[in-house]
Amino acid sequence: MTVTVFGSVNADLTFPVPELPAPGHTVLGGAWRAVPGGKGANQAVAAARDGAPVRFIGAVGRDPMAAIALSALRNAGVDLSAVLETEAPTGAACICVDAEGRNQIAVSPGANALARAAQVPPLAPGTILLMQMETPPGEIAALIRRARGEGARPILNLAPAGPMEPEVLRALHLLITNEHEAAWLAARLGCAATAGALHAALGIAVAVTLGERGAEAATGSAQWRVEAIPARVADTTGAGDCWCGVLAAALSRGAPLDAAMRRAAAAASIAVSHPGAADSMPSAAETDALLK
């Protein structure tokens, strides 16, 4: 089953620094790199490298940065036939990564703000539709409603946290947040920031990633916790995107949610041991080897 990803695609300018800069503080770092990124593109690459047929829908500019932004998607064999070229600049991110692998990120959306739900071809029943919050919320909401009508399985990674009507969230097949996004949403729903409480408030399956403490999930029939796999951390950029993309790939092959979460945890532990975002996503063989 194909995984369709509607989301952002950026060129990431990555700066290795000895420490993350504070306000008004200039830090001299090492050699910078221009690499592909964007939550949508990262997740699409992760799903494709895990073996899923993937179609990516987004928008880029007609500028030299577009080739950088799309390079990992092309190399992973992702279908880019529905990507829109616009006069707006390609989205870009500035990423500082310190000696402990922690990051600080600023993003200019650029062409990502012009991505439209109408670009998405008809969705076959059962298709996994994966989205994030770096494209216009109104387009995401329209696509969630349409996906449900076409029998697809819409999954939203609420990252970065942003407004989305509860009625739209209730139409999801699965909601994914990290612990900070869960706290943001829980404050608006008036519930605790746990997968179980968010599931009770929305009536849908919810997964919450907890960094080095793993992830938890709640559905109508079960709740469980999946532990993270220890790793040597080089760069945490894109780790959450790896988790989401590999989870989507596993679900598209019919894996139950708990098994998909275990695979996602293994893939993310590999991703953080390499620098970069899209370029750090592991192959299916690498993830298989770690799980064994």
Rank of each mutant, 00 (worst) to 15 (best):
G245L: 07
P137F: 04
L13I: 15
G151M: 04
A52R: 14
R263F: 04
R253W: 12
G190S: 08
I229V: 15
A92G: 09
E19A: 12
P136A: 00
N75L: 06
P163G: 05
I140D: 00
T194Q: 07
A217R: 04
G7A: 11
P122E: 09
Q223K: 07
E179N: 04
L247Q: 07
A249L: 07
E134N: 04
I144D: 03
A289N: 05
A93H: 11
H25D: 13
A268T: 11
A266C: 06
W224A: 08
V272W: 04
E167H: 13
V246D: 00
N42A: 08
A182Q: 12
M281E: 05
E134I: 03
A289L: 05
A147S: 12
A31Y: 01
I144S: 02
E216K: 10
T219L: 05
V17I: 02
Q43P: 13
L189T: 02
N75W: 03
W224C: 06
A195S: 14
R62W: 00
R102T: 00
S108R: 12
A69D: 08
K292Q: 14
Q223R: 14
A88H: 05
A67Y: 06
A255P: 01
L290A: 08
C244T: 04
V54I: 13
R55S: 13
A106M: 09
A234P: 14
M261Y: 05
R102I: 01
T237V: 13
P160R: 11
A271I: 00
A187C: 05
V27M: 03
T26Q: 08
G276S: 08
V60W: 04
V120P: 00
A82I: 03
P89T: 08
M65H: 13
I95H: 00
D50Q: 08
A250P: 07
E150P: 06
T135S: 14
A11C: 15
V3L: 02
L169R: 02
W243I: 14
G220Q: 04
D63C: 09
I57H: 10
A111E: 01
